[in-house]
Each structure stands twice: as structure tokens, then as C-alpha cells.
Nucleic acid binder design. Structure first.
Length: 577
RNA sequence: GCACCUGUAGCUCAGUGGAUAGAGCACCGGACUUCUAAUCCGACGGUCGCAGGUUCGAAUCCUGCCAGGUGCGCCA
């Protein structure tokens, strides 16, 4: 099983060593996809300068020593010194054949790392918004991908389950009754509960006093207060899980590691920072000042770990968290899938942790910055009346729209089947839209675009998979039974086979760069290569049984790759649509 | 004021220092007696924000500027 780019890299590297001496055997041969061949090696151009020779001469020396007869049909020097390489059809076919037999479809199994991934992180008693949706969806795709690459991924749902608002929330819960309909709002419409509590807090001085007293009791560990607090969380969990189930996200209660988890460690964090001279008192608060972080008027900006009232901040919690992930979870790499505005906070927090010795250089931390989600007007997504959009309402609308489309196009299917398809398509469309653009840029949320059957959308990929399944259904065959042999004659067959070889490399790339949109781009290209093939190359009706067998094998490999690829993104491909 | 992010076709977005910068949508023109036309094929469409620099070669790296977004002392 081989990544053509990797194979060619090795061959060209050997040629470099043979032609220019062992010192050059380690040079990057700079293999890139080419518009004039399958791949091109660009190393000669860079080396020419160093060697004081003409690039074309260097290229021809490389080509003279290049042993690729088994892999390439044609090697050609062109332009200023590019080495264009065209793969042999039988080599591509052979690799595709290997792919068919490989349960991992060419995806490498990497040395196992412990990777805590922090994502989703909704707040108790608050509606999840589209921002949470995106970190949840992107995080889940990364988690699935990293696991498939062989890593020990530890999901960490750092929910907001602590802080001053809980005083008012607990008091409100007490007033409405723990088992009241009002309390049940937490399961379905948490903002309604939150707003009601806030309303009382803002309008009733008496309530506000009790709320503040309740915060003190909560932080002091009062048993009854803790019980009520736990009740709030349990109710909120119902809501979270409903969202996760609807979305098809892998998070469970076992992955909850909310802010409150680290309460016991906060005092120690502060004490150690102070003892080590990393933190200092400033205006009554305990602060860490770091070089290079200045705010307005050039003042140094602090990372506050203990407020002047003695309370701790999320910086303190995050420090305790990173220490826990290193010491207890034995993290090799820590991934934070969190909104882009937190970038500076993470930089300061990590630098502090490194200074304190809690975050060794050997442990890499990555902030997968999630950009804002905008409406079609280019502003932060809100309803027409200006309120934030309820996440469940958003998902319902996606499914509703998909339902209408399915009803229109597939009146032949029964209602239950159509409803299942509509769920897969509606939810898949939303998730895919979140994933298909680079995670750190803002993106425009547009139902019409994401549900379109054309373009780089979830439904387009699902449709490609559904058509393939339809072929096998029609032929009374199982994809597993399509074993080839694969032989390539038509250009569309060749293109499809070559595209299939790209799956392993792109999955590895996503694991390295934590950029799921690259997998989306790959799958879209693959689906396009398939539909092209589908138009030009009859499978079941192929005139020749050998051709038919080969095409069936290509089709089966495409199906598995699409389904696996979509699965890594957390998108389900329905049997038919 | 400082820091970070963004600026690529009318719109939404890709783009590993490599040749003539790519998709999709929209618009225009074609293809259904054929495995799902919810599709496919073709045409049109560009001062890669601007100006310098590095390089054999820059959308990509560096500097400055312009525009938009975000963050910047006791919320998380």
C-alpha cells in the first residue's frame, strides 16, 4: 500500500544520493502533484544554485540515476528543470488492489500517543450556540481521526459548571422546585431557565442577596447547596446528551471534566506560583506578568489567578487542568478545540504552566482556533428578531428542509425511510458545512448552500455513496465480494484509482495539522472522480466480465473510502437517498 | 495604542516556495430509451488588498501601509 508521493520521494531521494553524493540523499525531493504529469519533483531547481550548476543539468543527472521503471510510465525533464513523472497504469491498479484488501484503506497506524482533546464545553443552564456547535463538530471529527490513526484519545468536555452565576441558578431552582416544569426547562430550553433566574436577580434585591450568599455556600462546600448544584448539572446533562445524540457526536457523560473538577487544586496552583516567584500581588490580586503581553496604554497585562476577593478565575482552572492532563493523563499532545478569541489566554496560560514546570517542552499544546459562525448578512448568526439562535431549533430546521427535499425527490420511499434519510442528510449537511472550511476562519451559515446536492457539501458525498450502494443492490452483489482484479483502461478509471490512493496520506495530514477541511476537500475530489467515472463507465452493464469485475472493485473501494472518510468526519452515509 | 486572525473570480471558499492561481454557486450552452438527471460535460469569469524586500522562482516567507474582525486587570 503506498502513497505515490511517498514512493516517488524515496526513489528520487536515492537518485539524489547516487547522482550527487551521500550528502544529498537526505534532501527533500519536493514531490508535488503536477498539471503536466501525475507528479513532479522540483528538487533540481533548488539544488542547482547550491551546486553552481544549471538546473536542467542537475535534473538530468537525477533522472539518469532514477530507478522508477516499475512505478512510472514516463519521466521527463521540462521547463527550467522540473522532473515530470507519470505513473504506470498497472502500478496504480496494483496499489488500488492492495487497498481493497486493506481494512485501513491505506491509513497508517501511528505510534500511539496520549492525546486529551478539549472540545464542545457548553455551559450548564445555557443554550449551546452555533459556536459550541462548531467546536463540538470539529472536535469530534478530530477525535475520530486521531483514534483511527491509532492514538489514545481522551475526550475532555470542559463544561462550564462553576462560578458566580450558580448562586442565582440554585436559588431559582429552589424557588421553582427541583421537579417542577420550570426546572425541566433545563432539559429542553435552558436559556429560558437562565433568563428567569437572571430576571429575578436583576429585579429583586432580596433574591440577589440570597444568590450571593448561595455562591459562598457553594464554594464553602455546603452539602445541601452541593446537592442542588448537582441537580442543575444532572438536568443540563439531559440537554447536552440530547444535542449530542441528535448530532451524532461521540461525547458521553464519561467525558465530562467540567471546571468544578479542578476546584481542589486551585489553592495549590496559586500557592506554588507564588512560592516560585512566578505570580505576584498586584492591586490585591495574584497575577502572573509575562513578557510581551501588554494591553492598552502599554501596561503589562496580567494573568489573574486569584482575584482580590480571594476567588479563582478560569486561568487558575485552566492551569490546574493542564497540570492534570500532563501528570494524570500522561499527555503527549494536548488539543484545545476552542474559539479563536481565546488565543491570547491560552498563550499566557501555557507559558505560565511551562514556567511552573507543569508543562514540559516534550508535551505539545495546540489551540485549534474556531472562527465565528456568521449569518448570510455577514454578522454573528442571530434570529431575525436579533436573539441568539437556539441550537436545537437550528438542527430541527436543517432536518425539516431535508425532509422537504427528500419528499420531493423520493416519493417512492415510505415515510419512515424518508425520515431517516432526512435526518442523515440534514444533520450531515450542517456538520459537513462546519468542517469543510478551515476551522480558524469565520464562515457563513447558509442552509441553502449546505443542503445543495452540488458542490462541496455533505449531501453530495452522501449521494455519491448512495449511488454506489444502489449499483450493488441492483446487481444483487455485496461490496465485499468485489475483489477485482483491477485493471485500468479508461481515463476515468485511472483517475478514480489514483484518487483512492490519496486517502491514507490525507488522513495522516489531518492528524498532523488538525485540519478536517482537508479531508473534506479530498472526499469531494474523490466523489467528483467517481461521478465522472459513473457517467462514462457502465459498471453492471460493462460488456466484458473482466472489465465489470474491475469496475465493481473500484466502485467498492470508493464506497468504503467515502463511508470511512465521512465516518471520520462524523457524518453518516445513508443506504439510499 | 498593542497583539492575534482575515483580505484570492459577482458570491461562498480551496491552494505543501514551483510552470498558464483552482473548485462550487450564479450566469450562458450542451447531455436523460442507459447502474439514482438530487447527476454529468463545456464556456464565461482574476491588478491573489496596496507597496517594497528575500529568492532562480512568491497568493504562499519578511517589512511597511490600507481595510475588516477579535482580544487586551479582577466574567468564563
Amino acid at each position: 500500500m503506498a502513497d505515490p508521493q511517498e514512493v516517488l520521494s524515496q526513489r528520487v531521494r536515492s537518485a539524489l544520493g547516487a547522482a550527487l553524493g551521500a550528502d544529498y540523499a537526505g534532501t527533500d525531493p519536493v514531490i508535488r502533484p503536477s498539471q503536466f504529469a501525475d507528479y513532479q519533483a522540483n528538487a533540481a531547481l533548488a539544488l542547482a544554485k547550491k551546486l553552481g550548476r544549471k538546473p536542467r543539468d542537475v535534473a538530468s543527472d537525477i533522472v539518469a540515476r532514477l530507478e522508477v521503471d516499475d512505478v512510472c510510465r514516463e519521466v521527463e525533464i521540462s521547463g527550467p528543470g522540473f522532473v515530470n513523472m507519470t505513473l504506470r497504469d498497472d502500478w496504480i491498479a496494483g496499489q488500488a488492489q492492495d487497498l481493497l484488501a486493506d481494512p485501513r484503506l491505506g491509513v497508517p497506524e501511528q505510534p500511539k500517543q496520549n492525546i486529551p482533546v478539549d472540545y464542545s464545553a457548553p455551559n450548564v443552564a445555557k443554550e449551546m450556540h452555533v459556536g459550541h456547535l462548531r467546536t463540538t463538530v470539529v472536535g469530534d471529527a478530530l477525535v475520530r481521526t486521531l483514534e483511527f490513526l491509532g492514538h489514545n484519545v481522551i475526550r475532555q468536555n470542559h463544561i462550564g459548571d462553576w462560578g458566580t452565576p450558580f448562586g442565582m441558578l440554585i436559588e431559582h431552582l429552589l424557588e421553582v422546585g427541583e421537579h417542577s416544569a420550570d426546572a425541566d426547562l433545563l432539559k429542553t430550553d435552558p436559556n429560558a431557565f437562565y433568563q428567569a433566574a437572571k430576571e429575578k436577580f436583576d429585579t429583586s434585591e432580596d433574591f440577589a442577596v440570597r444568590a450571593r450568599r448561595r455562591v459562598v455556600a457553594l464554594q464553602g462546600g455546603d452539602a445541601e447547596t452541593l446537592r442542588l448544584w448537582q441537580g442543575l448539572i444532572d438536568l443540563s446533562k439531559v440537554y447536552f446528551n440530547k444535542v449530542y445524540t441528535t448530532l451524532g457526536v461521540t461525547l458521553t457523560d464519561a467525558d465530562l471534566a467540567g471546571e468544578s473538577t479542578y476546584n481542589d487544586a486551585l489553592a495549590g496552583v496559586c500557592a506554588e506560583l507564588e512560592r516560585a516567584g512566578i505570580a505576584e500581588q498586584s492591586e490585591g490580586a495574584l497575577c502572573v506578568f509575562l513578557e510581551g503581553f501588554t494591553g492598552r496604554e502599554g501596561n503589562p497585562v496580567p494573568l489573574i489567578v486569584r482575584k482580590s476577593d480571594g476567588g479563582y478565575t478560569y486561568a487558575t482552572t485552566d492551569l490546574a487542568t493542564v497540570r492534570y492532563r500532563v501528570e494524570e493523563l500522561k499527555a503527549d499532545r494536548i488539543v484545545y478545540v476552542v474559539g479563536a478569541p481565546q488565543a491570547m489566554h491560552f498563550q499566557m496560560m501555557w507559558e505560565t504552566a511551562r514556567k511552573a514546570g507543569w508543562l514540559p517542552e516534550s508535551v505539545e499544546t495546540v489551540h485549534v482556533q474556531i472562527g465565528n459562525v456568521l449569518g448570510t448578512d455577514g454578522k454573528i448568526l442571530r434570529t431575525r428578531s436579533g436573539k441568539p439562535i437556539r441550537l436545537m431549533a437550528l438542527l430541527d430546521e436543517a432536518v425539516e428542509r431535508a425532509t422537504r427535499v427528500v419528499a420531493e425527490n423520493r416519493p417512492d420511499l415510505d415515510e419512515q425511510t424518508r425520515a431517516a434519510i432526512a435526518r442523515d442528510v440534514g444533520i450531515g449537511a450542517v456538520k459537513y458545512a462546519d468542517l469543510s472550511v478551515s476551522h480558524d476562519t469565520e464562515y457563513v451559515f447558509d442552509f441553502d448552500r449546505m443542503l445543495a446536492l452540488n458542490g462541496n457539501t455533505g449531501p453530495y458525498l452522501q449521494y455519491a455513496a448512495a449511488r454506489i450502494r444502489s449499483i450493488f443492490r441492483k446487481g444483487g452483489l455485496a461490496p465485499e465480494d468485489a475483489v477485482g482484479p483491477i485493471a485500468l483502461a479508461e481515463p476515468a478509471e485511472r483517475e478514480l484509482a489514483l484518487a483512492l490512493l490519496g486517502f491514507g496520506p490525507v488522513v495522516r495530514l489531518v492528524g498532523d495539522t488538525l485540519e478536517p477541511h482537508r479531508l473534506c476537500g479530498y472526499l469531494f475530489d474523490l466523489a467528483q472522480a467517481f461521478t465522472s467515472f459513473y457517467e462514462r463507465c457502465p459498471v453492471l452493464k460493462a460488456e466484458d466480465s473482466t472489465v465489470r469485475g474491475s469496475r465493481l472493485a473500484l466502485t467498492a473501494a470508493t464506497l468504503r473510502t467515502l463511508v470511512q472518510g465521512l465516518a471520520l468526519l462524523g457524518v453518516h452515509a445513508p443506504e439510499r437517498m
